[in-house]
Design a protein around this nucleic acid. Structure first.
Lengths: 217, 217
DNA sequence: GTATTTGTGGATACACCGTACGGTAGCGAG
DNA sequence: CTCGCTACCGTACGGTGTATCCACAAATAC
């Protein structure tokens, strides 16, 4: 079977899922495809263009959720789809917000959320819409990024608290024992039990409530 | 004058400010300091540890704002300091949320915001506090990241709209002309005039209002 | 004063990266 | 048959982070 942009992007995504974005190289992709490294440059200008390709494949999955009945359901669906896709492809979080997303599917989800938000109460003109889109996207990007980071450190240190105390503990517990960070200490020590998805949902509705509430100009 | 972690971090920050994180290499730092590349490994274990060092230097600047009178003033001050520091050191946005911030100064600003938020109305228990901190940080991370990205593309394409139309235009305008993204098109075409700081401020107060509003459990 | 140890800075080397470049083999047109 | 063209391919270059070895100087032991 011949090479194609889609095939290259697909195996690149597979490799990135397995070994992260740092462990991804054109040489490994080419080897996985059974061709020389330079073959890829017949289909892709740059490594960064390949990245854009991979990103838009993920956005295609997000765009699949399509339109829902109400504006709020649509926004919620897109947000949750974004979170789910990012948790499936953790490298996506490394790129979220770090480059302009201009692929066709990225534009499609941008259009879907913008159109939905423009129908939200409290969004009266284009300026309101721009702010609302900005706030929502900022929250999604930051949330998902944080969750992936937490998951990574949890994986690298080991899930159980004993291994955690053994790896990050020596430094972190020493820091927290200084008493200079009492609130952070309380948060770290007995604040880890919260469900991630529930937290995401909770904060998401908080944001949406804030957006829809009419404010004085 | 002898080498030191501080000196290495300082010149690394200077180079990263000038040429970005991708253009930063241990060899260049060493050359800038007039030593061999391997000398740096006497002061730093990894390149990633050096990055952590640089990050905490920036957090030190953020932590300088110190405590304000009310919880809201404190949160606003920290948020604006974070934004200002990131705009001064754009590479900081590439790292924001992408790794755990455990340096002493990072913990200090974490403590400051957490302590302030714990005094906010509507934050009743530790779970509320954790969610509030998460929402606020997510917003700040996402906002600042987006702003830096926009600034970068604006710089690479040229500020004026003619150059923009010439570089990204051929693709983007063709995409927008398809009519599949009407809302995005409206946002792009005449939505660029909004002031970034004002938008940040506006959305920040929106988030804080959402947090402080008491909700049913 | 000489010998030995110790530590500090430097150079070299390795594996890997993205990608520029030159060559070669197949193939349709004249 | 020959010629030009296109599609593939291997090699090579300049760069990266980092491990290892080595020379030399300072300090210590006798």
């Amino acid at each position: 079977m011949p090479l194609s942009r889609e095939k290259i992007a697909a195996t690149a995504i597979r490799l990135a899922d397995a070994h992260g974005l740092d462990g991804l190289s054109l040489r490994k992709i080419a080897k996985e495809l059974g061709v020389g490294p330079m073959r890829l440059y017949d289909y892709v200008i740059n490594k960064s263009e390949l990245l854009d390709l991979m990103v838009d494949v993920v956005y295609a999955r997000i765009a699949e959720v399509g339109q829902r009945s109400g504006w709020r359901d649509t926004v919620l669906a897109v947000a949750h789809a974004t979170r789910a896709a990012t948790l499936d492809h953790e490298w996506f979080s490394d790129v979220l917000g770090g480059r302009p997303h201009l692929g066709p599917h990225a534009l499609a989800v941008g259009e879907a959320t913008a159109a939905a938000l423009s129908a939200a109460p409290g969004v009266r003109d284009l300026d309101d819409l721009q702010r609302a889109v900005g706030a929502l996207n900022a929250f999604i990007i930051g949330s998902v990024r944080r969750e992936v980071t937490e998951r990574r450190t949890a994986r690298s240190t080991g899930t159980d608290e004993a291994a955690f105390q053994a790896s990050l503990g020596p430094y972190l517990t020493r820091m927290l024992k200084t008493g200079r960070y009492p609130t952070v200490a309380r948060l770290v020590i007995d604040g880890a039990h919260l469900n991630a998805e529930e937290t995401f949902n909770h904060n998401l509705t908080t944001i949406l409530d804030g957006i829809t509430r009419r404010r004085p100009t």
